[in-house]
Design a protein around this nucleic acid. Structure first.
Lengths: 118, 118
DNA sequence: GTAGTAAGTATCTAAATGGGTACTATATTA
DNA sequence: TAATATAGTACCCATTTAGATACTTACTAC
């Protein structure tokens, strides 16, 4: 039994789901694996998420100590997000997920189409 | 770009999240990694989920071809769930998640307490 | 003849999630 | 003088998700 933030988890798997199971969390972490990103860059990388959603997910990831939020006291604002040490531990998970997705696409012969980006 | 069930995904990671991101999906798959399970066994393993939720998640996993549902024409009913070949490809993901959870518990010194089971 | 069983479905309600729009700050640019 | 840029917050509404409860089937045990 694991206690975290007034919730009980029966196994580490349940805790892991709680930590990275959010709507866009794994995707954000995946992008941060490459490098530190500004808020606007994340928004551009995940256009299907609204600004509110991104802010929410980023705050949650920060609270759980998976990412680090660095605010520069400038105008216009500049905020950089990067992976914490805990967050970096997610690398095997994220890479395995990506690999699984790839194999799933191949097995199920999902049409992969390139779209020209303006 | 990947097209799956009338939805578009920008990368395999997004698809993977769609497939295993549901409330109890990863947990169900994790338990099925060990062995085939009857519905009632899954219910016992994940008591925090209602029957409706479990049925829903299991149906979704079946639709996505990650698990196999075998119904025995008996009364009372007997239904067995097992991993498909696609589902078995999730093993590295699930094991990495579990490992991450473990390291997170250690790093953050979350009290792990044993509860006596009646 | 009643109770219990396994794996559900149906229905209703409550709570969480998500989207849209408007608003904020202040320095720089046109 | 007005527009632009960034990283938000505030508010309202719609949708989705989740929970609780009752019901079903047909066989077996009591």
């Amino acid at each position: 039994m694991i206690k975290y933030k007034n919730a009980l988890f029966n196994c580490t798997m349940e805790l892991a789901i709680e930590l990275i199971g959010g709507r866009y969390k794994a995707l954000i972490l995946w992008h941060l694996l490459d490098r530190t990103l500004r808020f606007s860059e994340i928004k551009r990388l995940i256009p299907q998420a609204t600004q509110k959603m991104l802010t929410q997910q980023l705050r949650s990831l920060e609270e759980d100590g998976l990412i680090i939020r660095k605010v520069y006291p400038e105008v216009p604002p500049k905020v950089e997000y990067s992976l914490s040490e805990s967050g970096k531990n997610l690398k095997p998970v994220l890479e395995a997920m990506c690999q699984f997705g790839k194999s799933y696409v191949e097995e199920h012969e999902l049409k992969t189409q390139m779209l020209i980006h303006p």
